[in-house]
Amino acid sequence: MTEADLKAAIIECLAPIAPEADPARLDPEANIRESLDIDSYDFLQFLIALSRRLGIEVPEADYARLASMKGLLAYLGARLQFPEKN
């Protein structure tokens, strides 16, 4: 999976949660929860969608690393390259 594919997958998972926003135009450094107005419930739904889409379950302890698009790409990219055992 290329980084572009991964980004497309992330955007796909964000779409139903923030339908009126355009995640493609996100500042990669911005905190997505703030810029897309995502509450903790929706953030969990986003992670559930990601786990279904990518097969990666993010432990709660790692939530902080997923704050921005940049963080998401780095974290999920690394997990995809070196899959951990579930």
Binding site: S40, Y41, L44, L47, I48
Partner: peptide, 8 residues
Amino acid sequence: ITDRLLPA
């Protein structure tokens, strides 16, 4: 992940 609890 689908069974996780929120603080709420």
